[in-house]
C-alpha cells in the first residue's frame, strides 16, 4: 500500500516536470517578426520554425523578459525630460496609433548639431549620423510572440493613462529599463479598475 502511494507521488512529480519541459523539447517556437533581438525598427529577417535555445524557450514560456538592455548610446532620458521635452517629441505618433516611434539619428541631430557636441556619447551619435547610419537602438518593451498580444498606445493615452504607469518615471531614468512586469495581471487590473473591456479579443488575436 505504502509502496503504491509513493509510486503514485513519483508519477505525479515526473508528470509535472514533463508537462513543463515538454513544450521546449517537442515544439520549436516561432520567431515572430516582432522579435527583440534585432533593433526595433528592423524586422528580424527570418521567421521560420527555428529551434530556440532551451533557456530562451524557458524564458518565453514563463514570460521572463530581460530587465535591462545594453544600448549603443547611454541615452539619458532624465536630462531630456528635465529640459522640458515631452515624450511625444521623439516618440512621435504614440498618441495616434499603435506603436511609439524611435527617433532616427537625424531627429537627434536637429538639436545636437549645436548642443553638447563635445560629450563622448554625442560624438558617438554624430559619427552614426555622418556615416548615414541609424543608431542601432535595442528594443526594451515588447511581448513574446507566444503572448499573442496586439497592443495599441493610442487608446491608452486618449483614456488618460500616464506614460509612467507602464514605462516608469523617466524623470529619474537614464537608459530605459523595463520596470513594470507588464504581464496580463498588470493589464487586467487597470482595465477592471477603469471599467473597460476585459474581453480576451480586446488584446489577444
Amino acid at each position: 500500500m505504502k509502496h503504491g502511494v509513493s509510486a503514485f507521488l513519483v508519477a505525479i512529480a515526473v508528470g509535472g516536470v514533463a508537462s513543463i519541459l515538454l513544450p521546449f523539447l517537442v515544439s520549436g517556437y516561432v520567431d515572430g517578426n516582432r522579435q527583440s533581438a534585432s533593433p526595433s525598427y528592423v524586422t528580424s529577417g527570418k521567421c521560420s520554425a527555428s529551434q530556440m535555445s532551451f533557456l530562451a524557450g524557458a524564458k518565453e514560456y514563463f514570460g521572463i523578459y530581460p530587465a535591462s538592455v545594453r544600448q549603443p548610446i547611454a541615452f539619458p532620458h532624465k536630462i531630456h525630460v528635465k529640459n522640458g521635452m515631452p515624450c511625444e517629441t521623439c516618440h512621435a505618433g504614440v498618441d495616434e496609433g499603435q506603436q511609439a516611434a524611435i527617433p532616427g539619428a537625424a531627429v537627434c541631430m536637429t538639436c545636437h548639431q549645436v548642443i553638447a557636441t563635445n560629450k563622448p556619447e554625442i560624438k558617438k551619435l554624430a559619427s552614426y549620423y555622418r556615416k548615414g547610419e541609424e543608431v542601432p537602438w535595442r528594443r526594451v518593451y515588447w511581448f513574446y510572440p507566444s503572448a499573442h498580444v496586439d497592443f495599441w498606445h493610442g487608446p491608452h493615452i486618449r483614456a488618460g493613462v500616464e506614460c509612467q504607469s507602464c514605462h516608469g518615471d523617466m524623470r529619474k531614468e537614464t537608459v530605459a529599463v523595463r520596470k513594470a512586469g507588464l504581464n496580463m495581471g498588470f493589464c487586467v487590473n487597470c482595465h477592471r479598475s477603469r471599467h473597460v473591456s476585459t474581453d480576451c479579443t480586446t488584446c489577444h488575436y
Partner: peptide, 11 residues
Amino acid sequence: LNPDVSVRSVG
C-alpha cells in the same frame, strides 16, 4: 507577414 495578427505556432 501582417504585424497586426499573431503568428500561431505548432499545436
